[in-house]
Design a protein around this nucleic acid. Structure first.
Lengths: 144, 144
DNA sequence: TATTGTTATACTCTATAACTATA
DNA sequence: TATAGTTATAGAGTATAACAATA
């Protein structure tokens, strides 16, 4: 961003945006945006509460309400209650939700391979470098 | 984003956001956000028109109007007219603008070194990898 | 009394359309 | 007629505050 073309911060913004645009294009015909997909992926892996999701996604809890509303209305996930704390909603994918998630996950992987085609297998180096930078700083934004 | 922690797209979003948050924190006492700084950096390097800046920044031209309004009101840059096409505004840093930019540029470089401290000199590899991914795809978003 | 989720609301950002001055 | 810049406005996204249910 100093000489913009050389700045890592600037490059990261551009790369992140382009990766996002591509992913959303690749998910478009499943009628999922990246955030919806990520939520499905997280819920598929673990039955989060909405607050836990908000924290994990770096989102406002009220935004999660709307996200979950949309996905529930489409029959992709369900809200039930946690037995040990009935205030919390336990989110679970429906069979349709799981099926859609699996399709989306395939596309996501392809999208990422396509996006990083220029660097081939060095994408693993990129992943490692980003992981080292990101891991220690987990304060603001999407956490963990 | 499939298994979120392993996804490059997800890592890129997080890294980009954290880098941005850090940069804005490091520029805060100069009363500049990242976008304002980037605009100053571009104008310092070349006397852009507002449309050219909008294209370069991947912003709406109306957003550039407001950005330039703010910076001009603070006496950091000036609008004059291009001689060969008097519709276009030629943007130039004032002496104060240039001085503030130089201070901001120092902070930006330090911010970036701090952010990438964990990978040390391998930040050059990271820069190279990102450059290879980003360069070919210059369609959507912040261009060139 | 504190917390989860919800709703309503306000605020910010971005995009769209109409206008002016120049070409 | 088309383009650069401006303004006003609408829309999307996000944050804030108050409320109900549960702890």
């Amino acid at each position: 961003m100093g000489q913009p073309n050389e700045s890592l911060t600037y490059l990261l913004q551009k790369a992140a945006k382009q990766a996002l645009v591509r992913l959303e294009a690749d998910l478009a015909d499943l009628d999922l945006n990246a955030r919806q997909y990520l939520l499905l992926a997280l819920v598929e892996h673990e039955h989060f509460s909405q607050q836990a999701l908000a924290h994990k996604l770096g989102l406002d809890p009220t935004a999660v309400v709307k996200l979950v509303d949309q996905l529930e209305a489409r029959g992709l996930l369900q809200r039930t209650r946690f037995a040990d704390d009935r205030r919390q909603h336990r989110l679970t994918l429906t069979p349709q939700g799981r099926e859609l998630f699996l399709q989306a996950a395939e596309r996501q992987q392809k999208s990422e391979r396509d996006f990083t085609r220029a660097i081939g297998s060095r994408r693993n180096e990129l992943r490692a470098l980003l992981g080292e930078i990101v891991a220690p700083t987990r304060s603001a934004g999407a956490d963990e």
